[in-house]
């Protein structure tokens, strides 16, 4: 089966979520005797780098109009590429833009759609996949009923292996309608790993007492190379930006390590983080419900414990570098 990956670009390159999707596609292609093809749109410096994660061929349309995301235009190009190259499976990373086109692509290809796939396929013939449901409290196994198939891959759900190879690049010019959604502006933090893709996350809550105290959280995150996050009350009080809010109504994440500092662990918060592989909870209240969901717990004053943890990490890093 030929597999097509939507290689969404950002800042002229590709994020980890795309490398994971490519690697996933390569496994399916290898196991079903097909090719792994990626489609990239807009300004990308080096589309052939996707070869490192298993792409055989990258179809690239570098037209500037694709730099602003319009779900109709991007879908049209992706569907065209899937048809041109006889791809029965389309893999899309589960990002904000990826989710915006997945349903549209599925309808246009008359395909079944499984979102938030969390692991490599359970079987290749027939193709069966698993995904998390009920905010990570269960896993559902899915079987496609259609010849064409579309899936979105949840962030940080597989471990992509890198190889030293480059992909063939084929230039393409897709014929798409004018954009109906006009992008006016983008306001995003630069340089940080986006939360849904982050492997390491340091998150803090109301126990911090105020936004002026976040220095110790940033020091810890910086030392660890982690992305910062926060609980809902913190975002609602504007102590931290809205995009840092993890939980039921914020971002759902699945990092390898989630360090929760001064967060009690309300069920709505856990719904967004309980797919984390390892959870560390630092809280002065030994009765905080979060300890029940934690792997490691530290009962103590966060204003003493956090700087101590940062120092211990610095020591560890200097010994192991």
């Amino acid at each position: 089966m030929n597999v097509l990956i939507y290689a969404e670009s950002k800042d002229r390159g590709f994020k980890k979520a795309i490398n994971d999707a490519v690697y996933y596609g390569k496994q399916v292609a290898n196991n079903t005797g097909g090719k792994c093809i990626a489609m990239a749109l807009g300004s990308v410096d080096n589309p052939s780098e996707l070869g490192q994660y298993g792409v055989d061929l990258v179809i690239h349309d570098g037209a500037e109009k694709f730099d602003a995301f319009d779900s109709v235009q991007h879908t049209k190009a992706l569907v065209q590429a899937a048809k041109d190259h006889h791809c029965n499976l389309v893999i899309i990373a589960d990002t904000a833009n990826g989710k915006s086109i997945a349903g549209r692509v599925a309808i246009n290809l008359e395909a079944g759609l499984v979102s938030m796939v969390n692991a490599l396929p359970l079987s290749y013939d027939p193709l069966m996949v698993s995904r998390t449901v009920f905010s990570g409290k269960a896993i559902a196994k899915y079987q496609f009923q259609t010849e064409n198939k579309v899936m979105t891959l949840a962030g940080n759900s597989i471990k992509a292996e890198k190889q030293d190879r480059v992909a063939e690049v084929q230039k393409m010019s897709f014929n798409v309608p004018d954009a109906m959604v006009k992008v006016l502006a983008q306001e995003t933090v630069k340089g940080e790993v986006p939360l849904p893709e982050a492997e390491l996350v340091v998150s803090a809550g109301r126990g911090m007492k105020g936004p002026e105290n976040w220095g110790i959280i940033e020091d810890l995150a910086h030392t660890l190379g982690a992305t910062t996050a926060c609980s809902r009350p913190v975002a609602d009080s504007d102590w931290r930006p809205h995009h840092e809010h993890v939980g039921q109504t914020g971002v759902a994440i699945r990092p390898n390590l989630y360090i929760a500092i001064g967060i009690s662990g309300a069920i709505q918060h856990l719904a967004g983080v309980n797919n984390s592989k390892t959870i560390v909870v630092i809280n002065k209240d030994p009765e905080a419900p979060f300890f029940k969901a934690a792997d490691y717990g530290v009962v103590g004053d966060l204003f003493e414990v956090v700087p101590r943890l940062t120092e211990a990490l610095k020591k560890y890093k200097s010994q192991n570098s």
Binding site: K137, A138, I139, A140, Q145, D295, G297
Partner: peptide
């Protein structure tokens, strides 16, 4: 176009290790 072929609940955490 897709059908669920069963659910699983992830294994419960073994309990917190206090440091």
């Amino acid at each position: 176009r897709v059908k669920v072929d069963g659910f699983e609940t992830p294994p419960a955490k073994s309990g917190v290790k206090l440091i």
